[in-house]
Simulated assay, not measured.
Amino acid sequence: MPAGSSPKRERQYEHIKEGARKRGESTERAKEIASRTVNKERARAGESKQASTTSTRDPKSASQRGGQRSHSGSQGPTRDQLYNEAKERGIEGRSKMNKDQLAKALGR
């Protein structure tokens, strides 16, 4: 942790580090994960003197985003999502259709 960190960030660092250790990460890797996480949160909160634009661009954390932006490129709904929509609409033969066929049958 950087010198002058708040007690809250110190506790956060230890909590993340211990969680990583319990998941089986090495001590060094656990420290790295904790440091990066805490530093990113400090940057988002405006607590660091230098913050990259990528860390401050979106003030939401990954858990707050709920998976948004977790994948590059949008591939649309999954085959299962399309299947469930087809089931709701009562489209015949849906169980034998692939993703593209389901999308076409749904008019997408």
Rank of each mutant, 00 (worst) to 15 (best):
residue 102 L to G: 01
residue 24 G to P: 02
residue 58 D to F: 13
residue 92 E to L: 10
residue 2 P to Q: 09
residue 4 G to C: 01
residue 35 S to A: 11
residue 30 A to L: 03
residue 29 R to S: 03
residue 85 E to Y: 00
residue 70 S to I: 03
residue 13 Y to E: 00
residue 95 S to L: 04
residue 91 I to V: 13
residue 7 P to Y: 04
residue 77 P to C: 00
residue 84 N to W: 06
residue 81 Q to N: 11
residue 64 Q to M: 12
residue 45 A to E: 13
residue 23 R to H: 07
residue 22 K to S: 13
residue 57 R to V: 07
residue 94 R to A: 15
residue 48 S to G: 05
residue 97 M to Q: 05
residue 107 G to L: 05
residue 83 Y to E: 05
residue 22 K to W: 00
residue 97 M to P: 03
residue 7 P to D: 12
residue 4 G to W: 08
residue 50 Q to N: 13
residue 53 T to E: 15
residue 31 K to R: 08
residue 93 G to M: 09
residue 2 P to W: 04
residue 32 E to M: 03
residue 49 K to I: 04
residue 38 V to T: 10
residue 55 S to E: 15
residue 94 R to L: 08
residue 64 Q to C: 03
residue 28 E to R: 05
residue 30 A to E: 03
residue 94 R to K: 13
residue 108 R to N: 02
residue 89 R to A: 09
residue 93 G to V: 00
residue 62 A to E: 14
residue 2 P to T: 03
residue 9 R to G: 02
residue 64 Q to V: 05
residue 108 R to M: 10
residue 102 L to E: 01
residue 49 K to G: 14
residue 105 A to N: 09
residue 65 R to A: 09
residue 27 T to A: 10
residue 67 G to L: 12
residue 91 I to T: 02
residue 97 M to S: 04
residue 27 T to Y: 10
residue 64 Q to D: 13
residue 4 G to F: 06
residue 92 E to V: 15
residue 17 K to D: 03
residue 74 S to D: 15
residue 1 M to T: 06
residue 15 H to E: 14
residue 69 R to C: 04
residue 13 Y to I: 02
residue 68 Q to H: 07
residue 89 R to L: 12
residue 105 A to W: 04
residue 94 R to E: 09
residue 86 A to P: 06
residue 64 Q to W: 10
residue 83 Y to A: 05
residue 32 E to N: 02
residue 42 R to T: 02
residue 41 E to A: 13
residue 82 L to H: 06
residue 37 T to L: 01
residue 83 Y to I: 00
residue 76 G to R: 05
residue 11 R to E: 09
residue 34 A to L: 06
residue 9 R to N: 13
residue 79 R to C: 06
residue 80 D to C: 03
residue 27 T to D: 10
residue 80 D to W: 09
residue 14 E to V: 06
residue 6 S to K: 10
residue 66 G to K: 12
residue 55 S to G: 11
residue 69 R to V: 00
residue 11 R to L: 10
residue 87 K to P: 05
residue 58 D to P: 01
residue 25 E to F: 11
residue 2 P to M: 06
residue 78 T to C: 00
residue 85 E to W: 04
residue 41 E to P: 01
residue 84 N to D: 14
residue 58 D to Q: 08
residue 37 T to K: 09
residue 28 E to K: 04
residue 69 R to P: 00
residue 102 L to W: 02
residue 43 A to S: 15
residue 89 R to M: 09
residue 27 T to W: 06
residue 61 S to M: 14
residue 8 K to Y: 15
residue 8 K to W: 11
residue 84 N to F: 08
residue 55 S to P: 05
residue 86 A to G: 06
residue 76 G to D: 03
residue 100 D to E: 12
residue 33 I to M: 07
residue 71 H to I: 12
residue 106 L to I: 05
residue 20 A to R: 04
residue 56 T to Q: 01
residue 27 T to S: 09
residue 93 G to N: 15
residue 73 G to M: 00
residue 61 S to F: 14
residue 3 A to N: 11
residue 62 A to S: 13
residue 43 A to R: 08
residue 50 Q to G: 07
residue 85 E to Q: 10
residue 6 S to L: 12
residue 4 G to M: 01
residue 32 E to F: 02
residue 58 D to K: 07
residue 1 M to S: 12
residue 27 T to G: 06
residue 37 T to P: 00
residue 71 H to Y: 14
residue 60 K to E: 14
residue 108 R to D: 07
residue 62 A to P: 02
residue 22 K to G: 01
residue 50 Q to D: 11
residue 50 Q to F: 14
residue 36 R to D: 10
residue 72 S to R: 14
residue 17 K to M: 09
